[in-house]
Each structure stands twice: as C-alpha cells, then as structure tokens.
C-alpha cells in the first residue's frame, strides 16, 4: 500500500515517487488543503474507502495516510 500511496502523492504533486518515504510530510512537499483533498479522492478511488473530511488534519504524512487507510480496511 505504501508504494501505491507514494505513487498517488507523486502524481498529485508532480514530484518523484523515489524521493518519498513514509516519513515524508505533506507540509514539506508544499501541499495545501486543496492538494490534500485531491489526493484523498485518489486514495478513496484506489483503495475503495471513504475518508472523512474531518480526519484530514490527522493525515500529515504518507505513513499516516497508510495507517489510516489500513484502519478503514479492517
């Protein structure tokens, strides 16, 4: 899942997936709230989950996104 999340982030923000790790934060990538919403929708499509917009504040890094989605899939 980490690789797929990285791929979506790389595509969404126009960065190289190879430069991304679980620890990479969206803040350091310069993503604003609209970038995050756009990626959230791609996560929803890719993993067939629904991400509550109230949870967005918690999703600060790639690793946190992975943990959050894994939680939804259980």
């Amino acid at each position: 899942m980490l690789e797929k999340v990285k791929e979506i982030v790389a595509d969404g923000l126009g960065v190289d997936a190879a430069d991304l790790t679980a620890e990479t934060t969206f803040e350091e990538l310069g993503a604003d709230s609209l970038d995050l919403m756009d990626m959230v929708m791609s996560f929803e499509d890719a993993f067939e989950v629904e991400i509550d917009t109230d949870s967005l504040a918690e999703l600060t890094s790639i690793g946190k996104v992975v943990t959050y989605i894994e939680g939804l899939q259980k």
């Binding site: 709230s33 609209l34 919403m37 756009d38 959230v40 929708m41 917009t53 967005l56």
Partner: peptide
C-alpha cells in the same frame, strides 16, 4: 460553505 466537502463533491 464547507469548502472541503464542496471541493470533493464537485471533483467527483
């Protein structure tokens, strides 16, 4: 307006 919800609605 709940901007995040509106964004999501529109883009979907």
């Amino acid at each position: 307006m709940d901007g995040k919800e509106v964004f999501k609605f529109a883009v979907k």
